[in-house]
């Protein structure tokens, strides 16, 4: 009786390992920022950071939705197309003279509806998320050109106001409305994942779907919910993008799903599901944004280095995840 062998932890080091990818991303971000500040005087300007958020607000929102999907072990390839479709639908409806609130409502309903349908097909017909969301990607992109083959400008006063509104401090640093919306989305998502049963079920399903089922968790509902959430986030992202560009263009945000997936993975979320944080995704998006900013500041580096660096980072982070996975076994 005196020897209780179940006290204490078996491998205390692993506790820190679960935060390792996140810490690595944070360190990377700080190093990149440090490099920027040391190399370019203008880089230390707070507005540089704000601009990263302004330029990537819509990406952040979409990446938050993708985080939900990836946490369950799924993937959503349709996000870029849904972003474009939402912007197109908004622009086209506004062009027809529909009132802005109605347009917002419709635009925000289409994405989740598509996500809901995809989630149902994935869950009930057991077809891989990759294929189903690929079809969703084709569908949404096709809808874009079906609506219009050319870009549609937006002149609606609500939209232009949202685009031009600067919220700033007295020294002239500012952010756009989109940034605030993006922050709100991040906060809601972080709360949902940490403090609601839905959020915890997302982690459970990503960790072990069979166990989740045996523990009586609502697997079907949760899985459909994450694709719906991703659709909703893509729709919000689409609205933000239309604020940013004040137009709807059929070929905008092509390939955006790759950036989004990269941001989520670099943010420490494991692609096989079950582990990761919205905060990590914020860091991942910032890493992408800062890389772009650095390359812009440099001026001699060409834009394609962005992709190569992102690919390289993806490799490093995936390898890191794999190594942690092996050690866990």
């Amino acid at each position: 009786m005196t020897t209780n062998i179940f006290t204490g932890r078996t491998w205390p080091r692993l506790l820190q390992q679960r935060h390792l990818p996140l810490l690595a991303t944070l360190a990377l971000l700080l190093v990149m920022y440090g490099v920027g500040v040391s190399q370019y005087r203008a880089f230390s300007n707070v507005q540089v950071i704000f601009n990263v958020f302004i330029d990537n607000g819509f990406l952040l929102v979409v990446a938050v939705g993708m985080t939900f999907v990836i946490l369950t072990g799924g993937i959503d390839l349709s996000v870029g197309s849904v972003v474009a479709m939402t912007a197109m639908v908004s622009a086209s409806l506004l062009q027809d003279g529909k009132p802005a609130p109605l347009v917002l409502l419709i635009a925000l309903l289409i994405g989740p509806a598509l996500g809901f349908v995809m989630g149902c097909v994935i869950h009930y017909f057991e077809i891989q998320p990759f294929i189903v969301t690929l079809a969703g990607m084709f569908f949404a992109r096709g809808m874009c050109t079906w609506i219009s083959e050319t870009s549609i400008p937006i002149t609606d006063p609500f939209w232009t106001a949202a685009a031009q509104e600067r919220i700033g401090d007295p020294r002239g640093n500012f952010v756009s409305v989109s940034v605030l919306i993006a922050f709100a989305v991040v906060a809601i998502a972080a709360y949902t994942l940490a403090y609601t049963p839905l959020g915890r079920n997302v982690y459970a399903i990503g960790g072990n779907p069979q166990s989740a089922l045996l523990m009586g968790l609502p697997v079907a509902r949760t899985r459909i919910a994450v694709y719906t959430i991703s659709g909703l986030c893509s729709a919000v992202g689409g609205i933000l993008l239309s604020f940013y560009t004040l137009s709807g263009a059929p070929l905008i945000a092509v390939g955006m799903e790759l950036d989004v997936i990269a941001a989520v993975v670099i943010g420490g979320t494991v692609l096989t599901g079950g582990s990761g944080y919205v905060f990590g995704t914020v860091l991942g998006v910032l890493v992408l944004g800062v890389i772009q900013t650095l390359i812009t500041f440099d001026g001699t580096l060409s834009s394609w280095w962005t992709k190569i660096v992102i690919g390289g980072l993806l490799f490093v982070f995936i390898l890191l995840q794999r190594l942690i996975g092996i050690r866990k076994k």
Partner: peptide
């Protein structure tokens, strides 16, 4: 590494490499 993830790396970086070769 899972195939879908492993080949995603080259999918992303490869476009950059191609542009590097053609210098954009």
């Amino acid at each position: 590494i899972q195939p879908i993830i492993a080949t995603l790396i080259l999918m992303v970086a490869g476009r950059g490499l191609a542009q590097l070769i053609t210098e954009g």
